[in-house]
Computed example of a mutant assay.
Amino acid sequence: MLDYTEQQSLRAYKGIKIGRDKFYRVMRINNLLVPKTKRFHITTDSKHRFFKYKNLIKNKVPSRPEQLWVSDITYIKTQSGHSYLVLFTEAYSKQIMGYKLASHIRTSLCVDALKMALKNRKYKNQKLIHHSDRGIQYCNPLYTSFAEQNGILMSMTEKYDPYENAIAERINRTLKYEYDLKRTIKNTKLAKKMVKRALEIYNNKRPHFSLKLNTPNFVHLNKNVDYHSYKRNKQNLGVLTI
């Protein structure tokens, strides 16, 4: 599969103008894509006794930076086993605000990533929604209490549907396929270095078609781009009002 730089080079060839999604559709129709591997490592355990919050963002999209954060846990393969990466993404600008990579999947993994995201806030006096799946880490009272003490409103998916947390799912995929995080890495120490570098490029150098070819960091600071939704049905979407 072509990476982002290769797609840019192809797009510039002879004045061809084509978006990433259409490019992939053309490749798929002609059987030129590498077949996807099955997801075999589960990172979400929603069968637990903890309280599950309602979905506050169903059919809604953000209208400003730091109105909505989405979070998800994925895994990075290493030669000694799996490491786990949690990301906090600012939905309006697609900027990754906080993250944590570790060899465990305990609640503290999410707490540490949330602490980083809070530290990186630019608009600290505005109300903020935190949206995630119903995994045990996000529902653990140790985690939810910390989030609510910092003035965050909790929101969760109602069922397992990637489009209920589409931004988080898409960014996980982008990081793995465009920044070589899909492969088996030597160890967690090296994986941390690769993740840090990937996020620096993603936030500050990689232009996004959904952001009119601006970077997440630029949009996060300038608020100048209409929001682009990844949901399949975009006709009935409202705007978050908090």
Rank of each mutant, 00 (worst) to 15 (best):
residue 153 L to Q: 13
residue 196 K to I: 08
residue 96 I to P: 01
residue 32 L to W: 15
residue 10 L to R: 12
residue 185 I to N: 02
residue 178 E to A: 01
residue 153 L to D: 13
residue 99 Y to E: 11
residue 211 L to K: 05
residue 62 P to N: 07
residue 132 S to N: 03
residue 237 L to G: 12
residue 156 M to G: 06
residue 24 Y to M: 09
residue 219 V to E: 04
residue 35 P to M: 02
residue 180 D to K: 07
residue 77 K to W: 13
residue 154 M to Q: 10
residue 165 N to D: 04
residue 177 Y to Q: 03
residue 94 K to D: 11
residue 38 K to D: 13
residue 216 P to K: 05
residue 29 I to H: 10
residue 225 V to N: 03
residue 149 Q to G: 12
residue 65 P to L: 04
residue 184 T to S: 12
residue 21 D to M: 03
residue 27 M to P: 01
residue 193 K to G: 12
residue 135 G to C: 08
residue 28 R to V: 05
residue 39 R to K: 15
residue 161 D to Y: 01
residue 117 A to M: 01
residue 199 L to P: 02
residue 94 K to Y: 13
residue 27 M to K: 02
residue 13 Y to E: 00
residue 36 K to W: 08
residue 242 I to S: 10
residue 155 S to V: 05
residue 216 P to L: 00
residue 182 K to V: 03
residue 225 V to S: 04
residue 91 A to L: 05
residue 107 T to V: 11
residue 134 R to I: 12
residue 238 G to Q: 13
residue 84 Y to E: 06
residue 36 K to D: 06
residue 80 S to D: 14
residue 183 R to S: 14
residue 237 L to Q: 08
residue 239 V to T: 13
residue 129 I to N: 05
residue 241 T to H: 14
residue 223 K to C: 12
residue 111 V to W: 13
residue 130 H to W: 02
residue 215 T to E: 10
residue 109 L to I: 12
residue 237 L to E: 09
residue 120 N to M: 01
residue 200 E to P: 00
residue 42 I to R: 15
residue 1 M to T: 10
residue 170 R to M: 09
residue 5 T to H: 08
residue 99 Y to C: 14
residue 185 I to A: 02
residue 107 T to S: 04
residue 50 F to T: 00
residue 122 K to M: 09
residue 132 S to W: 00
residue 106 R to H: 12
residue 75 Y to H: 14
residue 151 G to P: 11
residue 63 S to V: 05
residue 65 P to N: 10
residue 112 D to K: 03
residue 159 K to P: 03
residue 203 N to F: 14
residue 130 H to I: 02
residue 86 V to E: 09
residue 228 H to N: 06
residue 214 N to A: 07
residue 88 F to K: 04
residue 239 V to I: 15
residue 177 Y to P: 03
residue 37 T to D: 14
residue 232 R to T: 09
residue 235 Q to P: 07
residue 107 T to L: 05
residue 158 E to W: 07
residue 95 Q to C: 04
residue 157 T to E: 01
residue 164 E to S: 08
residue 218 F to K: 08
residue 15 G to D: 04
residue 24 Y to R: 07
residue 29 I to N: 13
residue 228 H to C: 03
residue 133 D to L: 00
residue 106 R to A: 15
residue 177 Y to R: 00
residue 158 E to L: 09
residue 40 F to G: 15
residue 96 I to C: 05
residue 217 N to V: 00
residue 184 T to I: 13
residue 95 Q to Y: 02
residue 29 I to L: 10
residue 214 N to C: 10
residue 214 N to R: 04
residue 190 L to I: 10
residue 233 N to A: 14
residue 134 R to D: 13
residue 80 S to P: 11
residue 185 I to W: 01
residue 143 Y to W: 07
residue 149 Q to D: 15
residue 142 L to K: 11
residue 90 E to M: 03
residue 140 N to V: 06
residue 146 F to A: 04
residue 120 N to A: 15
residue 220 H to T: 02
residue 184 T to M: 12
residue 204 N to A: 08
residue 75 Y to C: 12
residue 223 K to E: 07
residue 218 F to S: 10
residue 138 Y to L: 04
residue 195 V to P: 02
residue 140 N to S: 05
residue 3 D to G: 10
residue 156 M to C: 10
residue 129 I to V: 11
residue 232 R to M: 10
residue 69 W to V: 03
residue 189 K to Q: 13
residue 156 M to P: 02
residue 17 K to I: 03
residue 71 S to W: 05
residue 212 K to S: 14
residue 147 A to G: 08
residue 4 Y to Q: 04
residue 125 N to C: 13
residue 113 A to G: 09
residue 57 I to C: 05
residue 233 N to Q: 08
residue 59 N to C: 07
